[in-house]
Amino acid sequence: MALETLTSEPRESRVAALLRRSERFRLGLLLFPGLFWLLLFFALPLVVVVLYSFATPGPTGRVEWHFTLANYGTLFTESLYVNAYLRSIWAGVLTTLICLLAGYPLALYIVRRPPRWRTVLLFLILIPFWTNFLVRTYAWMIILSNNGIINSIIQALGLPRVALYPSEGAVLIGLIYGNLPFMVLPIFASLDRFDFTLLEAAADLGADQTRAFLRVMLPLTMPGIAAGSVLVFIPTVGQFVVSDLLGGAKVDYLGNLLQRLFTRSNPPNWPLGSAMAIVFMAVLTVAILLYFRITTEQDR
């Protein structure tokens, strides 16, 4: 059939039109479920949040519908929040970088295994995360605490105890631990598409391994790196539980601020929280779109 369209010229336009229509039909079919679900169960509820951000907080925490822009004003003038923003972004950058450095070789190793091993290895990476999040974090406390496993080993070696927890370092360990798979999976998916014979070709053309990696492999697996970085960076910036449990709740991250504004302060301030969330989302979404454009679509 495909052949026909090429040979029989007179019917060309009709077939093309038909094809185009079926193309559009197919696109609609593919697009509909996702569009439907996200519009109904995500975008529509989100409208409420947008409305909240222009409303006023009532004395008991109930949102009152007096239009105001004050929430956005507070957001940009209040210096109290700056530290939390910076701290969160720094934690996000650091976690993303370390996850990338640890995750890329891991994904590479898995891809190079025979198929049956690859699935097993993938599952092995995910299985630890099928336990409860809090219990996992508690396990880290047990490992890092003053009388914990690491300190027991250190003391057995005759060295003085180290205060590992609660600390910023413990928070970082917790964040890396919790986010590593989010980096590995997309990179794996991307490496899986990579044609390793290209490395051979590069070598044949005289490129050394480093050059071959930097010039061939890295650019071609950029979509995975980009996706992984986003999946690690975003949750890290918004988290609050890891920093509370492993860091001793002594400092605020962005996630703590939001949590407090919505459900921990009394009265809660939903309008201000909504405004903060909307700015946060807008900035990050634009950043992500740009990031993906730059890193993965230079071929278009």
Binding site: L80, Y81, A84, K250, V251, R260, N266, P267
Partner: peptide, 19 residues
């Protein structure tokens, strides 16, 4: 007690945690 003035406690707490 909670009243219009005690909203100030949220700011105190945010300042302490922001250090």
């Amino acid at each position: 007690v909670r009243n219009e003035q005690t909203v100030a406690f949220t700011d105190v707490w945010t300042a302490v945690k922001g250090e």
